[in-house]
Write a protein that binds this DNA or RNA. Structure first.
Lengths: 224, 224
DNA sequence: GATTTCGGTTGACAAGTGTTCACTGACTTC
DNA sequence: GAAGTCAGTGAACACTTGTCAACCGAAATC
């Protein structure tokens, strides 16, 4: 974390901001502070029960400052969704890109999920908590992102030789099964991490078993 | 709903209450009102953002009356968990009890889930929302109940002929896969029901496909 | 019939809330 | 260097909130 304003270039990374300079940099810094404060508070709280004052207090700003960045707490939530799924996105893309037999792919996928949960605990918890949470905008944002996610997995599956003769529709349904399973597994890892870390390896083993079972079903689908 | 106090016998159904009479009956009625009010408000809210005053207002009681029934809102949440999972429990037990080939069982299970979500929308939404919600007590209650649930499914699976040679451990992991899948499917049904009911049949089809895939994997597990 | 029990009400407390307003002052632009 | 922009401040608005002690009166007990 830099002590003085970050470089102007850094601002250009963040979408539509044509006026650059120290001004924008400071603003981004405050925005970050708000997002971080929010995520931190959401560790043991719902977005719906979060307060503007609470967030700004944690971020070290005055209450009114919040409205310079977000119209709503829901908007802050949506911003967190994008952040949270971005990291997960690049992660899983890496897994899908590498080739290998089914067994290897499963092991790697589970490892990557486990590591991701550990390294982005806050993000994962936020997603699990708000996926069916009380704020519609956020729920929809997560669902949309997860849908795009399944589409990407489906596309990757289509490239594999085992998918010969599979319809687009079936591939999509398989992809959704994988994504749902991934979400469940991530949530289980998280819960284990927060209550009884020893259970972590059991969850990994279970996830691998389940994925192997699905993979096996996939191989025999035609013959059925 | 009776206009005057229900029979004393009815109170005996509810655990440890040795003092019977109109007094207890009225108390139970108020308790019900609180639970119903809570569930109704939780339709678009989290438990953590619920307020005592809010609930009592909806139930038609004074704020202080709440504390005659629950020490906490968390306690009310736990009570709702028990209620919510009780209905689901008897439901799935009915499915498991009946015999039939895998295909039939899958169809029936998905149908039952769909109907259950429609008939107990509030309960299902509550479970989905609070499973990873901000109130630890409730989270743990749901997880514990879901665990017992998986154990029961595992026991039922053990009785099936297809489970010859399966270890207890593998059966448990299979059962967890089924339970997780059921939860995901129920959540999807719920979301569809509230936004675009036309998608309902697509979700049912997806769930059946996924279950068939898992079933297929199960059959070929030994050969793998 | 007198007494106790206890679910429910009333009223008050201090504490916290979202949101807006006029404002300050560092940065940007001209 | 003057003028303008705008992120952030502090104070105030009108509420809502959890929780408690004191009290009421119908049901239960004696």
């Amino acid at each position: 974390m830099p002590d003085w304003p970050i470089s102007a270039n850094e601002c250009l990374l963040n979408g539509v901001s044509h006026t650059v300079g120290a001004r924008q940099a400071q603003k981004q810094q405050s925005r970050r502070a708000l997002l971080d404060a929010g995520l931190h508070l959401l560790a043991d709280q719902n977005l719906a029960s979060l307060g503007v004052r609470e967030v700004t207090r944690e971020a070290g700003l005055s209450p009114a400052a919040f409205y310079r960045h977000f119209p709503d707490l829901a908007a802050l939530g949506v911003a967190l969704v994008e952040e949270s799924l971005a990291s997960l996105h690049v992660m899983i893309r890496a897994v899908l890109a590498e080739a290998g037999d089914a067994e290897e792919l499963i092991d790697r996928a589970v490892d990557v999920i486990e590591r991701h949960v550990r390294e982005h605990r806050g993000h994962v918890r936020f997603l699990a908590r708000e996926r069916h949470g009380g704020v519609r905008q956020v729920r929809e944002a997560i669902d949309a992102e997860l849908g795009r996610f399944a589409a990407e997995v489906g596309a990757a599956l289509a490239l594999q030789p085992q998918s010969r003769g599979w319809s687009e529709r079936d591939l999509r349904m398989l992809a959704e099964l994988y994504v749902d399973h991934m979400v469940s597994t991530a949530a289980a890892f998280l819960e284990a991490l927060e209550t009884d870390p020893a259970r972590e390896s059991r969850i990994a083993a279970t996830a691998r078993f389940q994925l192997r079972l699905i993979s096996l079903g996939r191989e025999h689908w035609q013959a059925g």
